[in-house]
């Protein structure tokens, strides 16, 4: 099984040189620590920034410079700022090559649920619905099962959707699966996970 950092490291291998990328909150944020040598990506923060830098040194925090998770960050030599309307114009317009997002549930047709648990968690979708509708490729990073051991990789999502038929690839603690015609295809098994274990933990149809 992969831990959070191993999942992030695996997700970082999805990145290609020259891409503009949006990383979601949570495990996707860790991806930045594992970007391969020689791969130059520009991170977009949907609150209005391209070229997001690391956290500031203590004492250098700037209230006017935050990421979409409201954390203080820094700028880089290539940084550009813009307003929210332009930020989502580039997202909807397909200019962002990839988004790496967290997920509560994913279905075998690529439906994603990651923004709401009715009656329990009502925080909002933020920019997630725009991202999954607009970016070139959507990769989700998630735990394969919930705390009770039930699959979160389902035939159909039970939670309200963030997007329908939007996920291209799932990176879970148990491996990597692609959304293909007819269901999910196993791309890779996590360290120490057997194909039988992955299949048993997956409610969705696995093809091939």
């Amino acid at each position: 099984m992969w831990d959070r950092n191993q999942m992030a490291a695996r997700a970082a291998q999805e990145l290609q040189d020259g891409w503009y990328v949006n990383l979601g909150i949570g495990i996707p944020t860790l991806v930045v620590n594992y970007i391969p040598e020689g791969v130059n990506v520009t991170l977009q923060s949907e609150n209005g920034m391209l070229g997001m830098g690391p956290f500031p040194f203590e004492g250098d925090e700037d209230a006017d410079l935050i990421n979409a998770g409201k954390q203080t960050i820094t700028e880089l030599p290539q940084t550009a700022y813009f307003d929210s309307a332009q930020s989502f114009a580039m997202i909807r317009g397909g200019k962002i090559a990839m988004a790496i997002l967290g997920a509560m549930e994913v279905s075998e047709t690529g439906d994603l649920a990651n923004w709401m648990i009715p009656g329990k968690l009502v925080k909002g979708m933020g920019g997630a619905m725009d991202l999954v509708a607009g970016v070139g490729r959507v990769v989700v990073v998630m735990d394969h099962t919930n705390k009770a051991g039930e699959s979160k990789v389902l035939k159909a999502c039970t939670l309200p959707l963030t997007g329908k038929r939007v996920v291209n690839r799932i990176i879970s603690n148990m491996g990597v699966l692609d959304v293909v015609e007819g269901g999910l295809r196993i791309v890779q098994l996590a360290d120490g996970v057997t194909e039988a274990e992955l299949r048993a933990a997956t409610e969705a149809t696995i093809v091939g």
């Binding site: 309307a85 989502f88 909807r92 933020g126 920019g127």
Partner: peptide
């Protein structure tokens, strides 16, 4: 959705009463 909210404001200010989006 965040981008829909931003565009609704932009459109309202730009004399555009409605727009179609794939978001949502």
């Amino acid at each position: 959705p965040q981008g829909t909210l931003a565009e609704r404001m932009r459109a309202g200010g730009a004399g555009i009463p409605g727009f179609y989006t794939a978001t949502g």
